[in-house]
């Protein structure tokens, strides 16, 4: 997924090979991750696609099924991955992810600790930010979930940047080997205040912590706990509103005829070919239904006492 090996990165000449992970794009809201195999086939509502037809094509190509239906084959990115990964838990989406990475001041070379791993949606972006020489250590107390996450990182080629550990961070805290080692810590736990004392020990001075909680009561309690070792405690909510765009053919009022039905009028107009000469308006509006709340993001900086 990431150009960890620069020779293998996206380019005009890079062709899809056996073993590649591709994101099959049907529509913006319908995508699927597929591992390309020599004899593999993909079957969907558009027909049957043979992987062997894909091999040798460029990423970004349109490919066709036996019935003439088509899909696009995209190179995976953390953003696409977030849209296609299998949800084993509630996941973080792009707005929260982006804000977390920037506010945690994660740059190449950083050591980042995360708990829980969940479905690995954020972890993938953390790995992108610490590459090529940093590392993400992520912990989940659920053994099977940790194993699935590990498989995913193998699949997306991030294993060299991410280590998944099985551990109850709320109960046991982060392992002692990380004392004073972490540049940033991310907590997505039901009772983050239990893990905060440990987080303050593993962070470097001036290191940043982020806690993600859906409920304000959790935030309240976390902030209380943060006060003793942290400063610059700030809580945010971020969202990304999507817009739909369409080309409208808005008629002038003067040319209209009161209550006369619009569709009749339209038919007449397209009949005499006048329509194309009318200036068209590009109109944008917010999508009707949208995510209204994900969680509160609380950031804090470890006090500098040296």
């Amino acid at each position: 997924m990431l150009p960890v090996d620069p020779t293998n990165k996206l380019s005009f000449n890079r062709r899809i090979m056996e073993g590649d992970l591709v994101v099959v794009y049907e529509r913006y809201d319908s995508m699927k991750p597929v591992k390309v195999t020599e004899n593999g086939v993909l079957q969907n509502r558009f027909g049957v696609f043979k992987h062997s037809d894909w091999i040798g094509k460029a990423f970004g190509s349109k490919v066709f099924s036996n019935k003439g239906g088509f899909v696009y084959l995209l190179a995976p990115t953390p953003e696409l991955w977030t849209l296609v990964l299998s949800h084993r838990t509630q996941i973080l989406y792009i707005a929260d992810i982006s804000f977390v990475v920037m506010y945690l001041e994660i740059v190449p070379g950083c050591v980042v600790l995360e708990s829980g791993t969940g479905s690995g949606s954020l972890t993938t972006s953390l790995a992108r930010a610490v590459a090529p020489n940093g590392h993400v250590f992520t912990f989940d107390f659920h053994e099977q979930r940790a194993a699935s996450a590990r498989e995913d990182f193998e699949r997306t080629g991030l294993s060299s940047l991410v280590t998944v550990g099985v551990r109850d961070i709320q109960g046991e805290g982060f392992p002692d080997e990380f004392l004073g080692q972490a540049d940033s810590v991310f907590l997505d736990l039901p009772q983050p205040w239990l893990a905060i004392p440990s987080a303050s020990k593993v962070l470097q001075q001036d290191g940043v912590l982020c806690s993600f909680s859906p409920c304000i009561e959790q935030v309240q309690r976390s902030c209380e706990t943060l006060k003793s070792h942290f400063t610059d405690i700030r809580t945010f909510e971020v969202l990304l509103h999507a817009y739909e765009v369409r080309e409208g053919n808005l008629e002038s009022w003067q040319d209209s005829d009161g209550g006369l039905h619009k569709s009749n009028k339209k038919r007449q107009r397209s009949g005499n070919g006048l329509e194309s000469s009318k200036p068209k308006t590009i109109m944008a509006r917010r999508n009707g239904e949208t995510r209204g709340h994900t969680g509160y993001l609380t950031f804090a900086r470890l006090k500098c006492t040296m």
Binding site: Y25, Y28, C223, R234, L240, Y243
Partner: peptide, 18 residues
């Protein structure tokens, strides 16, 4: 291009005190 998305980020900060 595909996957075209037009979006607007929104950010709100909170005062958290007892």
């Amino acid at each position: 291009a595909i996957g075209l998305q037009l979006s607007e980020p929104w950010l709100r900060e909170y005062q958290v005190l007892p």
